[in-house]
């Protein structure tokens, strides 16, 4: 249980650290050299592109969670192991499993 929470806590800590550096630096984007206002784009459509990014990543995030759930379900059901990307060829895998035993 603690192990499961620590995964989440690691991500929370990382994100919090990022927020602290980004917010703490304001109003500078490059400390004492360039303000955020001066660095911002002069283009319109900032809200539109932000919305676009949020929607895109919400869809991708949902898909990632969905696929992780599919993988977990497949793993729980047992059956043949799906291939591991970039893993060693099957013969080597069997050897190492035997080695562990």
């Amino acid at each position: 249980m603690l192990g499961a929470v620590s995964g989440l806590a690691a991500i929370t800590a990382m994100e919090c650290g990022w927020v602290v550096t980004e917010v703490g630096r304001q109003p500078w984007v490059v400390y004492k050299l360039l303000t955020t206002t001066a660095a911002a784009t002069t283009n319109g459509g900032v809200i539109a592109s932000l919305t676009f990014v949020i929607v895109l990543y919400a869809v991708l995030g949902a898909a990632t969670i969905g696929i992780l759930r599919i993988l977990a379900r497949r793993w729980r059901r047992g059956g043949p192991e799906p291939e591991v990307p970039y893993g060693p060829p099957p013969a080597l895998q069997e050897q190492s499993v035997r080695g562990v035993e």
């Binding site: 291939e83 591991v84 990307p85 970039y86 893993g87 060693p88 060829p89």
Partner: peptide, 10 residues
């Protein structure tokens, strides 16, 4: 052909 494949062809 040392990277994985799902069959022998590599």
């Amino acid at each position: 052909r040392l990277l994985y494949s799902d069959d022998d062809s590599g």
